[in-house]
Nucleic acid binder design. Structure first.
Lengths: 229, 229
DNA sequence: TTTGGAAATGTAAAATACACACTTATTTAA
DNA sequence: TTAAATAAGTGTGTATTTTACATTTCCAAA
């Protein structure tokens, strides 16, 4: 084992992003129609290549910002996919990231510009390379994270109803939850602020809006109180 | 976004392995003293570079096999470390893997040959580059895995006592566990075979040896019964 | 045969998770 | 004005899981 850095192989490193959104009904992912070879015209995750001067997180942020116009997106590194022939054009490894964004205030124009489209996760088309595998892994990771960390709120507008929150979790976990048990549990966490305001769009009675209180949550964490849905 | 693979940067990709072992008392990691620059003489994880013709798993296996002589080591990809200047010699990213091996039957000669040494995780020396960070992350991952998947057995000899198993979990989780509760829980999982044989080394009475029954476990999984310690 | 030391064993209490159905508020249409 | 429709809001008992906890058994060695 010598310090022979020069004789070692160098590879292209792609970063591909699974962008999750939630439209009040379904968990969705944002896909683009590839306008270049190989696999031109097919659907794929949004991605790009790592540059010499940036970290993987930087690259993922750059790519996400480019497509969505957002900074400060919630994002987590997922896995490095390295099958030798995964990209037929050239030996390329890809580090998958998943990101959570509030689907409501994304930039329509950018989405159009890249022929991007939101798909419900169970209606998404087949993707190029190993991107389907990436999505599967992202869903599993999101599931595990969402029950133990308060990241679901990243997918919701700042103010949301209990029902919206419940539907979000139902779509992430892919199972029906009991309304009363869910609300009891969430209230027990003591991390939401109930507002005076009501959302009147979904019913005649209207339903109270809530906000996630990050400071309260952080204090809970310090006190060893854990988030668990 | 064009298919300009040629203009993209290529990087060196290292694979570094956190090798865990268990010596009946402490959780340990295997480290080597670097015999090449940069950071010659310092302790580090064992690692190597990805070759053009192999996957990351292949590379990790190759590296592990090289040092331990084993094939079929339990192994999981952990995370990609990508700070731009993490390796002062050249832009290198590293994919960390952690591995679990039965410390008893590793190859002494190979270990010596590479000036490798086992360290208890809380007595390990400071490591080069970002390797300390890798170890920290590996410990957290191992903790999460070990309570939800029966991977602890990878660290034990084929036949082990309940007490050994408990000590193993105590050292992984870094907390004392109650003997009766632990045994009740483990027995409840219905994945161990109690042997006739006893281990006589630790007491006059001797304690029964157990074996992990993978087939039983697999059947449980099919039946939706989950492992949970 | 006594002694020392680890192995083996069970139960009650507490906390958590789960199942489950009716009332309230409000708008719109009769 | 009253009735009907619709989603919101709310609580309790039961089952399950987790936790706390102490004594007896077995064997070898003295």
């Amino acid at each position: 084992m010598l310090n022979n850095y020069n004789t070692e192989d160098k590879v292209l490193l792609a970063v591909d992003c699974i962008i999750f959104g939630f439209d009040q009904e379904d968990l969705k992912i944002l896909l683009i129609k590839r306008d270049f070879e190989p696999e031109k015209g097919k659907w794929s995750l949004i991605g790009g290549f790592l540059k010499m001067t940036e970290t993987l997180d930087d690259a993922a942020n750059r790519i996400l910002h480019h497509l969505t116009g957002f900074e400060e997106i919630y994002m987590e590194q997922l896995y490095n996919f390295s099958k030798v022939d995964r990209d037929p054009a050239e030996r390329t490894l890809s580090v998958a990231y998943y990101a959570l964004i509030n689907i409501e205030d994304h930039d329509e124009k950018l989405i159009e510009q890249y022929s991007a489209k939101w798909f419900s996760i169970d209606e998404a088309p087949s993707l190029i390379f190993d991107h389907n595998q990436m999505v599967q892994k992202a869903i599993l990771r999101l599931r595990r994270r969402a029950i133990s960390k308060p990241i679901g709120f990243e997918l919701l507008p700042e103010k949301f109803t209990m029902r919206q929150l419940q539907k979000l979790y139902e779509s992430i976990l892919d199972e029906k939850l009991d309304k009363r048990n869910f609300i009891n549990k969430v209230n027990g966490l003591d991390i939401l602020v109930k507002l005076e305001e009501k959302d009147m769009t979904s019913s005649r009675k209207g339903s109270y809006l809530y906000q996630f209180d990050k400071e309260k949550y952080d204090r809970n964490v310090e006190d060893g109180i854990t988030f668990k849905i």
